[in-house]
Computed example of a mutant assay.
Amino acid sequence: MKSSKKRKKASEKILKSLRVPINKHLPIIVDEAAVSLRTKEEIINRIIPLSIAAAKAMEAPPEKIEDFIEKYHANGLFTKEEQKFLSTNPIIENERIQYSWKLECIWLLLWSVNLISDLDAPAGTCDADFVFETVLLSSKQELLEKSAIKPVGEILDILDFTYRAHWAVREAQLNDWVTPSSLEAGVVYERHYTLNWLVNYMEEEWDDVSTST
């Protein structure tokens, strides 16, 4: 089991290789023994509504959205904010952008249950077509049967790296610096948000997850 200090050191080494600024004073993150991960069913139940909302943001026809909701019996899976978005017509542009970015959350969640094998550095956006094909062409039961949660240590490795990368992104934004080319700010934010939900950070539910750095 890797200690939080070793995890911090490993993340800083990777960030240095990517030429990303490092804040040595950022604290260590939680130890593995103290983490209570979301269950596999909780993760699948988050992937499904996020995928439906993202499909609407990507301009799927209204009748298709209704078909997805019926297929997954998804009415009880949406958060209040997602319900509001799904009931909005026409879509407000900033909300369309916001829910398009949720594809990055889905990508991270698919990785967390081994429905995608690799998670690249957050330098570019994910494969939206692959997300929709993987999720919306499968039944909920198929998703549950095909998935298996990654070890908590692997998830914490990514969380620690993303937490420190997010600090660098925010510093660039606050100081009007150029964001390191090895980081895409939106991807870093969505991954940090999703990882904090995955590890039950401060026991916050999806609409209220914080990403402090």
Rank of each mutant, 00 (worst) to 15 (best):
A54T: 10
K56E: 04
A57K: 10
M58A: 08
A60N: 01
A60Q: 02
P62W: 02
P62A: 04
E63H: 06
E63R: 11
E66Y: 07
E66P: 09
D67H: 11
I69K: 12
I69E: 06
Y72M: 15
Y72G: 12
N75W: 15
G76P: 08
L77E: 11
L77A: 13
K80Y: 15
E82P: 06
E82R: 00
F85A: 03
L86S: 01
L86Q: 02
S87C: 08
N89V: 13
N89Y: 13
E93R: 10
I97W: 04
I97L: 03
I97T: 09
Q98T: 11
S100C: 07
K102W: 06
K102S: 01
K102P: 01
L103R: 00
L103N: 04
E104F: 01
C105V: 10
C105N: 12
I106P: 02
I106K: 00
W107K: 00
V113A: 07
L115E: 01
S117E: 04
S117Q: 11
L119W: 02
L119F: 06
C126P: 01
D127S: 07
A128R: 14
V131C: 04
F132S: 09
F132H: 05
T134E: 11
L137W: 04
L137S: 15
Q141W: 11
E142N: 11
E142C: 09
L143N: 09
S147C: 10
I149L: 10
G153A: 13
I155G: 01
I155R: 02
D157L: 12
L159H: 03
F161C: 08
F161T: 11
T162G: 10
T162L: 05
Y163T: 07
Y163K: 10
Y163R: 12
Y163A: 03
H166G: 11
W167V: 01
V169P: 04
V169T: 08
V169N: 08
R170Y: 08
E171M: 11
E171K: 09
Q173M: 14
L174I: 15
N175A: 05
N175P: 04
W177H: 14
S181H: 13
S182M: 13
S182V: 14
L183C: 13
V187Y: 10
V188Y: 08
E190F: 00
R191Q: 03
L195S: 05
L195I: 01
